[in-house]
Computed example of a mutant assay.
Amino acid sequence: MAEHNELGKKGEQLAIDFLIKNDYIILEKNYRYLKAEVDIIALKKDLLAVVEVKTRSTDYFGNPQDFVNPKKIKLLLSAIDYYVNEKDLDVEVRFDIIAIIHQKKETRLEHLKDAFLHF
């Protein structure tokens, strides 16, 4: 497996551990709908958190969250609209980004709630 794929998998596991520690229940990992893939769908009380995980080994080229583009957001919106309707859920939906910079000796994790409001 390519090194960047391993880093991505490690980042997703760090994000899942972080969410569980903060009282989220993980409903789905790598949920797919058409061309969209949602990294994590988690529930906390009556809030459905749709989480995009961005992991980088450095911030030299920018912050991890800067790599979520409008096309990705559009795909996530359609996937979650389908998911909520398919599961007949009555929840508030929030789109988050968990940005991780994982270097050899240090890992920084930032949970950006309502991340797409800034686009």
Rank of each mutant, 00 (worst) to 15 (best):
M1G: 15
A2L: 11
A2R: 12
A2H: 10
E6Y: 05
L7I: 14
K10V: 07
E12S: 02
L14M: 15
L14E: 15
A15Y: 06
A15S: 13
D17E: 15
F18G: 07
K21R: 15
K21G: 08
D23C: 05
Y24S: 13
Y24Q: 12
Y24K: 11
I25F: 11
L27Y: 14
E28M: 07
K29E: 14
K29W: 01
N30M: 07
Y33E: 14
Y33R: 11
L34I: 07
K35C: 02
I40V: 15
I40Q: 09
I41Y: 07
I41F: 08
K44V: 08
K45F: 08
K45V: 12
L47M: 10
L48A: 07
A49M: 11
V51P: 05
E52C: 04
E52Q: 11
K54A: 13
K54M: 10
K54I: 11
T55S: 14
T55V: 06
R56T: 15
D59I: 06
D59T: 13
Y60C: 00
F61I: 09
G62C: 08
G62Y: 00
G62F: 00
P64C: 05
P64G: 04
Q65C: 01
D66E: 13
D66W: 00
F67H: 06
V68H: 04
V68A: 06
N69E: 02
N69G: 02
P70F: 03
K74D: 15
L75F: 13
L76Q: 06
L76E: 09
L76D: 06
L77Y: 14
A79I: 03
D81R: 02
D81T: 08
Y82E: 08
E86V: 05
L89I: 01
L89P: 03
D90N: 13
D90Q: 08
D90S: 09
E92T: 09
V93H: 01
R94I: 06
D96P: 00
I97N: 02
I97K: 02
I98C: 03
A99T: 03
H102S: 09
K104N: 10
K104F: 11
K104Q: 10
K104E: 14
E106G: 01
E106R: 15
E106Y: 15
E110Q: 06
E110K: 04
H111K: 00
K113I: 05
K113Y: 01
D114Q: 01
L117T: 02
L117P: 00
H118E: 11
